[in-house]
Amino acid sequence: MTTLTVSDVTLTFGGLNALTNVSMEIKPGLITSIIGPNGAGKTSMLNCMSGFYHPTTGSIKFGDQDISKAPPHFVSELGIARAFQNIELFAGLSVLDNLLLARHRHLNYNFFQAIIYYGKASRVEAENRAFVEDIIDFMELEAYRHSVVGNLSYGVQKRVEVARALTLNPKILLLDEPMAGMNVEEKEDMVRFTSDILIDRGTTVVLIEHDLGVVMDISDQIYVLDFGEMIGEGTPEEVAQNPAVIEAYIGEE
């Protein structure tokens, strides 16, 4: 079980501080939420964690390994997977192919075994398929297995997005607004999946979400960002009592 430690991260885009001295600790076995108003720097934080952005100063460590300068494909190999806010699936492929793609690093046959496709490659692919089917089962995507992703409804696409990140078999799963734009029923499903991901699969979850009801319900730890600065942290009860958080969300009395 590895802890993701963010210490004093500042992220600057040409004079604008997207994040200012943000520190947080993602403890294994918990659901940690990052909340805050629009433009608070939540997604920037996630981008830093997953290697798409590199902090200007400060460091991000996964266990003992410094990942603040690591590219995304390296970070994902370490065991940090993410689902994107705006769906970034391979739109022309089927759900199955999307998930198989995420297993890229886990398939250990080489090019020559691949072009012969006999013996090892075939066997590994079959095992791989079994693993992917497991995820499909977990995320309840059976009915859409062979559908082209681009033709699916928004809610299902979001689910595929989470499924694809899960297929990487990560230690930490970063979910960027998985429930945005969903109806109540889909939202309930997604909440169930999120807590199941932790309980059944033992994957630590980092959640960015605007629906405070959901966040207060399922989070173990909450970090609140506003204008790139950390204004509050703690358990849901502590955060709900925090005057700075209340001010950021509903303004002064």
Partner: peptide, 30 residues
């Protein structure tokens, strides 16, 4: 050779970078 390539990771990664290279990066492909 090409037919076999396309049903393995060595072929799928090509389609991944075509469709969305940001996501391909996040999925562990350079």
């Amino acid at each position: 050779m090409v037919r076999n390539l396309l049903r393995t990771r060595h072929g799928r990664c090509l389609i991944a970078v075509r469709d969305n290279d940001r996501a391909a990066d996040a999925m562990g492909m350079h």
